[in-house]
Design a protein around this nucleic acid. Structure first.
Length: 803
DNA sequence: AAGACTACTTAGCACACGTTTT
DNA sequence: AAAACGTGTGCTAAGTAGTCTT
C-alpha cells in the first residue's frame, strides 16, 4: 500500500512529459478512459471507514514532532514565509527541451545574484527602519486622517486587530460609502462633464506633492486632440475626472447611462491580384474568394513553425475545406501539395511597401486612425467620456493557441454584425449597424460592463468589448481588489492557523483543502479550475494538480521534506520549483498520492468551488486569487523596505524598486522568453560601460595633473580648472554608475517579466508612496498608460501609505 | 454535485513606433 | 538619412469565479 512504485515511474522521472505531443496524446486518451473509473474507485475507497482509520492512525503517529516543527516555522512565517521567492525559473512553453536545460543553467546564476542583492541592502536597513518608525508614530498619534476607502466590501468578518493606525474602521467607511449614489437620478444623457471640475478637497502635507500637481489648468473638454501634441513637458494632464472622490453606484448596477457607437469591424477581404498564383500539385488554381481568403491566412504564417505542426495543418485543412466550393473540395485533397509561396511573397512585399511609405502617407494613416479612435474609441458612461479598450472586432484568421493546443490552426471566422450583441442604455442613441446589416440583439443590461459581445467559434466562448483600464468602471474594481487583499492581511494569520489545524482533520476533503490552500498561500499558485479535456492545452493550477506534477523527496540537498513541482500553468508556462514543506504537509501529500496513477488528480476531493466556498466563510470576498494579490503586494512592500537605501541616488533606488518588483514576478512565476536580441544588447551596453570607464580614467588623469598644477601656481585660473576637472570626474562617475546599474537590472531581468505583476498584482499605492517618500518621480516607475490606469492611486496615496 | 453559461481579470508576445546611434 | 534599438501598445488567449439549471 505504499505507492512507492509511483516514485520510480520513469514517466515522472523524465519530467518533460509535455514535450512529446504524441506521447502526450496517448496519455490523455488513457487518462480519459481511466479517469472515471479511478474516480469511482477513489471515492469508494475514501468513503469506507477502514481507510479513514488507517490514515488517521498514520498521522497520529507523527503528531508530536510535526507539531514542534510547525511551531518553529510559524514564527518566521508571518509575513515573510516567502521561501517560495527564491524559486527557480525556467522559461519554457512545453516545446523544446533544449530550452529547459538552458533555463536550468541560468537559473542558478540568477539565484546567486538575487542573494547578493539581498545582502547589500542590509547595511542601511536598520537605520531606515528606525526612521520609519518615528515617522509612523508621528503621523498616527497626530491627526487621525480619515482617509476615504472605497467601501466596496462590507465589514470584515474575521476581525483581527488592525496592526497599524492606518486602517479605517469598517463602520466609518460604510457610512461614507453605502449611500447609493442616486436612486432617483433619472438618467438622461446630461451634458457630459468635461473632466476635472472637481473640488480639490483633502490633501495635507504637500511638500513633495507640489511638483506633481500643478492643479491649475482647468481641463479642456475632450481632453484629447490638442493635448496629445503637447510634448511631455512634465505634466501631461489633462486634469482628469476624479471618480474616486465620488460615490459609487448601488449594488450590482454598473452604470446608469451608456452610449457608444458600436464596434469597428475588420476590413472586408480584398481578393489577391491576378498575378499572384496559387498552385496545387504544380498547377495553377484560381480559388474562389472564400477559399482564397482562408488560404491567405495560411500563407501569411508560412514562415512560422506553427505551419509545420501536424495538428495545426490538420485543423487548418479541415476548416479550409469547409470554405471551398465543391470543385475545389474535389481537387484539393492534400495540403502538402499546396503551394502558397507566391501568396506569401506577395504579403511580404506588401509589408515592405508599407514600411517604405513616405512620411505623408504614414501621417495620413495615422490621422485616419486617430479619427476612428475618436469616433469609436470612446463611449459615454454616466456623463463621462471614457476610453474603450478594444473597440475593434477581432479579424478572422487562424487560431493560434498557446502551448500544445488541440485546436491550433482552426479557422477563426469573420464576425458579422449579425453576430453582435449591443449593450447600451435604452435612452441612448443606439449604434447603427453597417449598411445592409443588423445586430443580432440590442439589450440594455446595466448589471454588466460590456458594450458589445459576440460568441467566438473556436471555444464557443463569449468575447466582449469593455472599457479601458483608466476608466472608472475598471478602476473602481481594481481598487476594490486591493482593498480585499488588505482585508486578507488582517486575518491571514488566523487563516494560516486554521489551515494548519486542518492538516490534521480526519476528513480527507478538509485535509486536501488545507494543503492546497497552503500551496496557494505559500507559493502563490493559481486556483486551478478544471478545464474540458481536449478543448484546451493541458495546463493546471493548484486544485487541478495531478500526481505526475509533483515529486516528493524526504530528503534532498540537505533539506527535509522537499516537494518538487513541475507542471505547465496558464499560457503553458512551466512552473518548476523545489520547496521544503512542513512535515505534516509532506505526509499528507504522500497520503493523497497513495494508490493513484500519475495522471490522477492529486486533490481528488477538491475543486476550486469547494475551496472558494470555504474561503468565503473565512472572510467575505475571499477567493483563491486574493492570496496572489495579497502575497504579491505584501512582498513588494516588504522588499521595498528592505532594499531601498535612502542614501542611494535615483538610479540605484530604481534598481532597488525593480528588484522588489522582480521578487514578486518570481513569486508569481511571470516569465518571458529572453528577448531575441538580449545577448547583443547586453554586449552593447558592456561596450558603452568600457568606453565610459576609459573616459573616466582620462578625466581622472586630467584631474590629477590639474591638482598638481594648482599646487604649484595658485592663481585663479588653475583653481577654476581644477574645479571643473573635479566636476567632470564626478559627472562621469555618475554616468558610469548609471550604466552599470542598468546592466545589472537588465541582466537580472533576462527571463522575468515585470509588467504583469506591476499591472495586476501590486497595489499601486505602495509604489506611489515609495516614490513620494524617496523623491523619485512617478514617471520613473510608471509610464504614461500605467499612470492613467493608476491615476486613483497616484492621487490618493501619501508617502506613508501602508498596504 | 455537476455542468452550462456568463462576466471579468490576467497573460505573453509581436510588432509598430519613437528615439538614439551611426 | 539610415540603421539600430528599446519600449510601449494592441491583440487576444487563457485564466478565475459567479450564477443558474438540472
Amino acid at each position: 500500500m505504499s505507492g512507492d512504485h509511483l516514485h520510480n515511474d520513469p514517466q515522472i522521472e523524465a519530467g518533460f512529459r509535455v514535450n512529446d505531443s504524441h506521447k502526450h496524446k496517448k496519455d490523455k486518451e488513457h487518462r480519459h478512459k481511466e479517469h472515471k473509473k479511478d474516480k469511482d474507485r477513489e471515492k469508494s475507497k475514501h468513503n469506507n471507514s477502514e481507510h479513514k482509520e488507517h490514515s488517521e492512525k498514520k498521522h497520529k503517529d507523527k503528531h508530536k514532532d510535526v507539531e514542534k516543527h510547525g511551531e518553529k516555522h510559524r514564527e518566521k512565517d508571518g509575513e515573510k514565509h516567502r521561501d517560495g521567492l527564491k524559486h527557480t525559473l525556467k522559461i519554457t512553453r512545453d516545446k523544446d527541451s533544449e530550452k529547459h536545460k538552458d533555463g536550468e543553467k541560468h537559473r542558478e546564476k540568477d539565484g546567486e545574484k538575487h542573494k547578493d542583492g539581498e545582502k547589500h541592502k542590509d547595511k542601511h536597513r536598520d537605520k531606515d527602519r528606525e526612521k520609519r518608525k518615528e515617522e509612523k508614530l508621528k503621523s498616527s498619534s497626530g491627526s487621525v486622517k480619515v482617509k476615504k476607502e472605497n467601501g466596496f466590501s462590507s465589514p470584515v468578518r474575521v476581525k483581527d486587530e488592525p496592526e497599524d493606525g492606518f486602517t479605517i474602521s469598517p463602520t466609518a467607511h460604510n457610512k461614507a460609502m453605502k449611500r447609493p449614489r442616486d436612486d432617483d437620478d433619472d438618467y438622461k444623457p446630461k451634458k457630459i462633464k468635461s473632466e476635472g471640475e472637481k473640488k480639490g478637497k483633502k490633501r495635507k502635507q504637500e511638500e513633495e506633492e507640489e511638483d506633481i500637481k500643478p492643479k491649475k489648468n482647468k481641463t479642456k473638454d475632450k481632453g484629447h486632440v490638442g493635448e496629445v501634441k503637447k510634448k511631455k513637458g512634465k505634466k501631461e494632464e489633462e486634469e482628469k475626472w476624479k471618480w474616486w472622490e465620488e460615490e459609487r453606484h448601488a449594488d450590482g448596477v454598473k452604470w446608469k447611462f451608456l452610449e457608444h457607437k458600436g464596434p469597428v469591424f475588420a476590413p472586408a477581404y480584398e481578393p489577391l491580384p491576378d498575378n499572384v498564383k496559387f498552385y496545387y500539385d504544380g498547377k495553377v488554381v484560381k480559388l474562389t474568394p472564400k477559399a482564397e481568403e482562408v488560404a491567405t491566412f495560411f500563407a501569411q504564417m508560412l514562415e512560422h513553425e506553427y505551419t509545420t505542426k501536424d495538428i495545426f495543418r490538420k485543423n487548418f485543412f479541415k476548416d479550409w475545406k469547409k470554405e471551398m466550393s465543391a470543385d475545389e473540395k474535389n481537387m484539393i485533397t492534400n495540403l502538402s501539395k499546396c503551394d502558397f509561396t507566391e501568396m506569401a511573397k506577395y504579403f511580404k512585399a506588401q509589408s515592405e511597401a508599407r514600411k517604405a511609405m513616405t512620411k505623408e502617407e504614414k501621417q495620413k494613416i495615422k490621422e485616419e486612425n486617430e479619427k476612428t479612435l475618436q469616433e469609436y474609441g470612446f463611449c459615454v458612461m454616466d456623463n463621462h467620456r471614457q476610453r474603450i479598450a478594444n473597440f475593434r472586432i477581432e479579424p478572422p484568421g487562424l487560431f493560434r493557441g498557446r502551448g500544445d493546443h488541440p485546436k491550433m490552426g482552426k479557422l477563426k471566422r469573420r464576425i458579422m454584425p449579425e453576430n453582435i450583441i449591443i449593450n447600451c442604455s435604452k435612452d441612448s442613441k443606439i449604434p447603427t449597424p453597417p449598411a445592409g446589416h443588423k445586430w443580432k440583439e440590442v439589450r440594455h443590461d446595466s448589471k454588466v460592463t460590456w458594450l458589445v459581445s459576440w460568441t467566438e467559434n473556436i471555444q464557443g466562448s463569449i468575447k466582449y468589448i469593455m472599457l479601458n483600464p483608466s476608466s472608472r468602471i475598471k478602476g473602481e474594481k481594481d481598487w476594490q481588489k486591493y482593498e480585499t487583499a488588505r482585508r486578507l492581511k488582517m486575518c491571514v494569520d488566523k487563516i494560516r492557523n486554521t489551515y494548519r489545524e486542518d492538516w490534521k482533520s480526519k476528513e480527507m476533503k478538509v485535509r486536501q483543502r488545507a494543503v492546497a490552500l497552503y500551496f496557494i498561500d505559500k507559493l502563490a499558485l493559481r486556483a486551478g479550475n478544471e478545464k474540458e479535456e481536449g478543448e484546451t492545452a493541458d495546463t493546471v493550477g493548484c486544485c487541478s494538480l495531478r500526481v505526475e506534477h509533483i515529486k516528493l523527496y524526504p530528503e534532498i540537498d540537505g533539506q527535509e521534506f522537499v516537494v518538487e513541482f513541475d507542471f505547465l500553468g496558464k499560457d503553458s508556462i512551466r512552473y518548476y520549483n523545489k520547496v521544503p514543506v512542513e512535515k505534516r504537509v509532506f505526509k499528507n501529500l504522500q497520503l493523497f498520492m497513495e494508490n493513484k496513477q500519475p495522471e490522477d488528480d492529486l486533490f481528488d476531493r477538491l475543486n476550486t468551488s469547494i475551496l472558494n466556498k470555504h474561503l468565503q466563510d473565512l472572510m467575505e470576498g475571499l477567493t483563491a486569487k486574493v492570496f496572489r494579490t495579497y502575497n504579491a503586494s505584501i512582498t513588494l512592500q516588504q522588499q521595498l523596505k528592505e532594499l531601498t537605501n535612502a542614501d542611494d541616488n535615483v538610479p540605484a533606488k530604481i534598481l532597488s524598486y525593480n528588484r522588489a518588483n522582480r521578487a514578486v514576478a518570481i513569486l508569481c512565476n511571470h516569465q518571458r522568453a529572453p528577448p531575441k536580441t538580449f545577448e547583443k544588447s547586453m554586449m552593447n551596453l558592456q561596450t558603452k560601460i568600457d568606453a565610459k570607464k576609459d573616459q573616466l580614467m582620462d578625466a581622472k588623469r586630467e584631474l590629477k595633473s590639474a591638482k598638481a598644477d594648482a599646487k604649484v601656481r595658485r592663481d585663479e585660473k588653475t583653481k577654476k580648472l581644477l574645479e571643473s576637472k573635479k566636476k567632470a570626474v564626478q559627472r562621469i562617475e555618475e554616468q558610469l554608475m548609471k550604466l552599470e546599474v542598468q546592466a545589472t537590472d537588465r541582466e537580472e531581468n533576462k527571463q522575468i517579466a515585470l509588467g504583469t505583476s506591476k499591472l495586476n498584482y501590486l497595489d499601486p499605492r505602495i509604489s506611489v508612496a515609495w516614490s513620494k517618500k524617496f523623491g523619485i518621480p512617478i514617471e520613473k516607475i510608471y509610464n504614461k498608460t500605467q499612470r492613467e490606469k493608476f491615476a486613483w492611486a497616484i492621487d490618493m496615496a501619501d508617502d506613508d501609505y501602508e498596504f
